[in-house]
């Protein structure tokens, strides 16, 4: 039954055999074309090169004395501080504590936001009851709620996890509701005509359909969770990267402050790449 006009699409990533230099030229050309396509290797190369240029300029500016080191220490000074903090100040322990807090709050937020967001989109009564409240709380600045959270939960771990949860849950729940809303009704109707009940519609169709965007949104909100870490860890904390940064700030140890910030950035980068890998593995069909 197949014919010339009704052929499968060419497989992505498969290109006709061609010379190595021509492939490289095409990949480089793709970098400069509007919405052009390049190879992943070339793109990684560009990313590393761009980072090296920025670091090089920064190092040169610091060494030339254009910027006072207490405001912006050189990359080599930050690297030195990072080494000292790791070998002498238990930075690994603080990283582990912060990571634990962030993941505890994030998993709690996800475990609550996914079912609530799905229910908000699926049943109007839940949406109508919760959406205005969530919208209201979503706009409250997390730092403004620090005193309240101390009154409610004291100065222990609960407060820190609560503040991180607060910054994540209310955003995530609306994103999940939106993901659910975007499940094409055709999928739902096809499943209904082949006999799916409500539970089967949810598991076999809705969750499968929203899977890729849901994982993307989890990835984005996990990033937000890290951005609230400093706020959570300046509240009577004695551990965590936020605490380390805050302590360093008190004694104007700018290289250590920068090192703490860099650590958060690196953790974010690695986590993001791992979640992207997960996305590619789970959703090969995209």
């Amino acid at each position: 039954m197949s014919g010339a006009m009704d052929e499968p699409l060419p497989e992505r990533g498969k290109r006709p055999a061609q010379g190595r230099s021509k492939t490289l030229r095409t990949a480089l050309g793709g970098l400069f074309a509007f919405r052009g396509r390049s190879s992943p290797t070339v793109e990684v190369g560009v990313s590393v090169l761009a980072a090296a240029i920025v670091l090089g300029l920064w190092e040169a500016a610091s060494r030339a004395g254009w910027i006072a080191p207490q405001f912006l220490p050189s990359p080599s000074a930050v690297l030195g501080a990072l080494w000292t903090m790791t070998t002498e100040q238990s930075l690994g322990y603080h990283i582990a504590v912060s990571t634990g807090r962030v993941w505890a709050a994030f998993l709690l937020a996800a475990a609550m936001a996914i079912p609530i967001g799905i229910l908000m989109s699926s049943y109007r009564i839940v949406g109508a009851a919760l959406e205005p409240m969530i919208d209201f709380i979503r706009y409250l600045p997390v730092p403004a709620l620090v005193p309240l959270s101390i009154i409610w939960f004291g100065v222990g771990e609960t407060t820190k996890i609560f503040l991180l949860w607060l910054g994540t849950f209310f955003q995530l729940v609306l994103l999940v509701a939106d993901d659910m809303r975007r499940v094409p009704h055709e999928y739902v109707e096809v499943a209904r005509t082949v006999g799916a009940n409500s539970r089967q519609l949810m598991w076999d169709v809705a969750l499968r359909s929203m899977g890729p965007t849901l994982l993307d949104n989890l990835r984005i909100t996990l990033g937000w969770c890290w951005t609230y870490l400093i706020i959570a860890e300046i509240v009577a904390a004695s551990s965590g990267i936020g605490y380390v940064i805050w302590q360093a700030r008190r004694f104007v140890k700018t290289p250590e402050v920068m090192a703490g910030v860099v650590v958060i950035g690196l953790i974010g980068l690695v986590t993001d790449q791992l979640l992207r890998l997960l996305h590619r593995r789970f959703f090969r069909y995209l």
């Binding site: 094409p184 055709e186 999928y187 109707e189 096809v190 209904r192 005509t193 082949v194 006999g195 169709v205 499968r208 359909s209 899977g211 959703f283 069909y285 995209l286």
Partner: peptide, 17 residues
């Protein structure tokens, strides 16, 4: 709806996953 009457739509006609 039941399976005696099946639907074929213009778009989103098959499940991508």
């Amino acid at each position: 709806p039941d399976r005696r009457r099946g639907m074929v739509f213009q778009s989103y006609s098959s499940f991508p996953w």
